[in-house]
């Protein structure tokens, strides 16, 4: 569930409720929506970047040496990356509670 973080007094609100911090949604971690997580097998990966391109949640991010890694803070576990990886280098594994 959404963390209730809009608790503010009316005097603390910025003009017209404007938000001046770009991308402040990064404070909202969507990773806990996930029931399965992608695991990348670098031996199979050809560094094509499709997983990065197709992730709706910007959770496949460029990593060292041209590989891509999952950002579990935001990954919702949709499985698009695994489905679209041309080398089947990504496997979805169940999250354990």
């Amino acid at each position: 569930m959404a963390k209730i973080d809009a608790i503010m007094g009316w005097k603390e609100l910025d003009l017209g409720c404007v938000i001046r911090q770009p991308g402040s949604s990064r404070a909202f971690k969507t990773g806990d929506w996930r029931s399965q997580r992608p695991v990348v097998d670098r031996d199979k990966c050809i560094k094509c970047g499709l997983c990065w391109v197709y992730c709706p949640d910007l959770s496949m991010v460029p990593a060292e040496e041209g590989y891509y890694k999952v950002n579990l803070d935001y990954c919702k576990g949709c499985g698009i990356c695994a489905k679209e990886c041309p080398k089947d280098a990504i496997t979805m594994v169940l999250e354990e509670d």
């Binding site: 809009a6 503010m8 007094g9 409720c17 404007v18 938000i19």
Partner: peptide, 15 residues
């Protein structure tokens, strides 16, 4: 800046 965000119940009254 972002203008016109969703006014959740926690903030609508204050807004």
């Amino acid at each position: 800046v972002s203008m016109g965000l969703v006014g959740v119940p926690e903030i609508y009254t204050e807004a």
